[in-house]
Design a protein around this nucleic acid. Structure first.
Lengths: 197, 197
DNA sequence: CGCCTACTTGGCATTAACTGCCAGGAAGTC
DNA sequence: GACTTCCTGGCAGTTAATGCCAAGTAGGCG
């Protein structure tokens, strides 16, 4: 399985080292107060190479969202056809949860994101990208829902709401230091919105 | 009423001139391609002063959101106490709509925001700010809602969902060049999520 | 009107996030 | 061992943004 060229292997090592340094410094002094120069220095890499690994400073925190988006989309697609849009999205969310970082790291990152306005905004913006990719998947499943409305509007609204609830649940979860189950919080959010289920 | 010192009057004029120049240039060459230096030059002002009027480049596009957020909060607060949280938020949204720019300008700005990632992020950031300020207002109104859940979670989820629907409706509205009524789109989004009403 | 204070303006220097370019070195191929 | 390919680091340059200071202008007062 390690049929990787040495280049790729050492790249993984470098990426991990940079990421560890960055997250540590962000936690210690805050995101805005930490400069790229400092991260590069402490990670033992040139500033120029750091920008080759991570195109922007924000990617140091919310860079791997890309892969998670793909996983989410595939999971939702593969849910049985008779499942409602809401349940299919909920199943996808569940898979993301288990596939995510070790919970301690995820908690640290979540706190950083929710405490730093510019990061939070960037994070949501990246998420909007998967959101757009999920809309057609949900539209294909809308036979079960109420007819008479424009399916484009319906599916966009449903996906946006689900992500709003995921976001809210994650924020509450980070605020409680991870002591409350994230999936439970998500269900509470959705119940508050939809009033049943 | 024009009991304003000449300083404030000429400031209003300058702000408007800068804003007009900026929006025109953004529309002509795109947001990223337009530099602060160019805007300042064409508006006949120094770069330094431009940054005193608008703290950031993004504020040139979504700067007056601050005032709208205040208006939104006050409007929601002043709705009759027996009105549900959903209806109070809907009333606030309606007021924002009428208090907004002339529709042509609003459409242009919306498209610019949705098409420019960094702008979109900044817009989301400002929205998150109002969101946080609205949560206590909504929590105070939750006596009408289903009891048994944590009100903090409930109110956060409701506010987040409403904004998700506002965002979705606005995106659809901009995509249809403003030909569909924004309030109607919002109602459709909320109906798709809540299933009745 | 002349003076003083309050506030604004513009220029200069500086920082931080990026980007392009180019030389040099290590990894993989034959 | 030569050759190609790819990565790395340094250097210069751009852009947004901030602090500082000197110069100018509005407004109030004698």
């Amino acid at each position: 399985m390690s049929m990787t060229t040495l280049w790729e292997r050492s790249r993984q090592v470098a990426v991990q080292a940079i990421l560890d340094t960055a997250v540590r410094l962000f936690a210690e002094q805050g995101y805005e107060q930490t400069t790229i120069a400092q991260i590069a220095r402490e990670a033992g890499i040139s500033q120029r190479s750091l920008f080759r690994y991570f195109g922007t400073k924000e990617d140091l925190v919310c860079g791997d969202q890309e892969a998670l988006g793909e996983l989410l989309k595939r999971t939702v697609e593969q849910q049985p056809a008779e499942m409602s849009a809401w349940d299919a999205l909920r199943a996808g969310f569940e898979v993301i949860l288990t596939a995510n970082h070790p919970p301690e790291r995820a908690l640290e990152l979540s706190r950083l994101i929710f405490d730093t306005p510019s990061l939070h905004a960037r994070y949501i913006e990246k998420r909007l990208h998967w959101q757009a990719e999920l809309v057609p998947v949900i539209r294909a499943r809308l036979g079960n829902g109420p007819s008479g409305a424009v399916p484009e509007t319906q599916s966009k609204a449903i996906v946006a709401t689900v992500f709003a609830c995921i976001d809210t649940a994650t924020e509450l979860w980070a605020g409680h230091d991870g002591r409350i189950d994230l999936a439970d919080l998500y269900d509470q959010c959705l119940a508050a919105v939809r009033g049943h289920d």
